[in-house]
Amino acid sequence: MEYTRLGTTGTKVSKLCFGTWRFGKRTDGVVETDREAAHDLLDACWERGINFIDTANVYGDPSGTSESYIGEWLEDYDRDDFVIASKVYFPVDDGPNDSGLGRKHIRGQIDATLDRLGTDYLDVYYIHRWDEETPIEETLRTLTELVEDGKVNHLGASMMATWKLATALWESDVNGLERFEVTQPRFNAAYRDDAPYRQTPNYPVHVGHYLDFCAEHGLAVCPYSPLEGGFLTGKYERDDEAPSGSRGDLESWIDQFGDREWAVLDAIRHVANAIDATPAQVSLAWMLHGDTPTTTAPIIGARTPEQLDDSAGAVDLTLNDDHVERITAAY
């Protein structure tokens, strides 16, 4: 595994981040990744040198299950060997202060998160979304206090409009507050440049502009859905019925992909065949190609250690300029 600095901070992370949103998640009454499977996957991360682990206070059923699985696993390891990120914003109950980015909710949730993880600090604490009802200055002051208290090392922002990220950085600058150092947009070879966030129409983000802004301001970029929900693994065809138990079971999931996305997948398959790699590895290697002012540490998911092995192989894969251009041009 290779390691890189997290943006302009002094923290070093593996070039792949492991996402745990499936830990404890129930689909049709069935747990997608139970405690034993979660611990096996975390063991596999450790064995492959992946030290960057991403979770959130609402992952799992009930909320917090993912954090609990990680905390139980960490009991057998040295906490300081890992860079652990979690998030806050979404409702954890139905009370008036059980969601959002107000001081009361953030302070309550950081303590609950740390308790479930069995640690006294987070390496990265993300706001999971922008809170339209809470002044960003209140949110940033509260988060700055968490850094000053030693509960959080760095702040992060999950997806939001570029102008909102700019507003937050400005507030941090003029008020002497901690700033966001890490961002988490949706980005991959088939979702970039002029693509808006399809699933969040209230956030008219254009990915290319967003990434340019992050590079200009030295923000680390840790994209989620780097394989576009499994589409870029190459396991689907245009006329396929989605396999049972897959992301494709979602209604009309495969219908969202048009000629542009299929052209990208065709290019990825071509490169994969040429260099004896898998489409997933090529997709991730495309994201890791080249030197930029920021970190790109894609957040990968896996159901099995074998899937994790496949993704981890991307770090050792070298794409030449022609390979990269073929995939880029296909979009």
Rank of each mutant, 00 (worst) to 15 (best):
G71R: 08
G313D: 14
H206V: 03
V324I: 12
I275P: 14
G290M: 08
Q256P: 05
E181R: 13
D131H: 04
D28K: 14
R79V: 10
E2W: 03
I84P: 09
T183V: 15
R22F: 07
G245D: 10
A215F: 13
P204Q: 08
K12G: 02
Y89R: 07
G313F: 09
D276T: 02
L117A: 06
E178R: 13
T292H: 15
K151N: 07
D249Y: 01
G118Y: 07
I299Y: 03
Q307L: 04
G258N: 10
Y89S: 11
G108W: 05
E261D: 13
A189P: 07
I50S: 01
L319K: 06
T278C: 07
F257H: 13
A277H: 09
K104Y: 09
L101S: 04
E132M: 11
H323V: 04
T318C: 01
C214I: 05
G64N: 07
I299S: 03
A302Y: 06
A161K: 10
D212M: 03
G290K: 07
D40G: 05
T27F: 15
T162A: 01
G64Y: 10
R303D: 05
M287Y: 07
L74Q: 10
V13G: 08
P96W: 05
D76C: 00
I70C: 02
H154M: 01
G176H: 04
G24A: 07
Y224N: 03
H128P: 03
R238D: 01
R79S: 09
D111M: 02
V83R: 03
T294R: 13
A38S: 13
Q109Y: 02
E133H: 09
E36L: 05
A297R: 10
E228Y: 13
A56T: 06
A274L: 09
P135L: 06
L308T: 12
H39I: 00
V152A: 03
S244C: 00
F82V: 04
G234M: 13
T55K: 06
P185F: 11
P279G: 10
F231Y: 12
A242Y: 10
F231T: 12
A272E: 09
E75P: 00
D76R: 15
L177T: 11
F82L: 15
I136S: 08
S225I: 02
L6G: 07
Y77N: 08
F23N: 02
V207T: 14
V264P: 09
A37G: 09
D54C: 06
I106M: 11
I254F: 06
T27E: 15
R129H: 09
R107N: 12
Q184A: 12
T11Q: 13
D276V: 01
T113E: 02
V207N: 09
K104T: 15
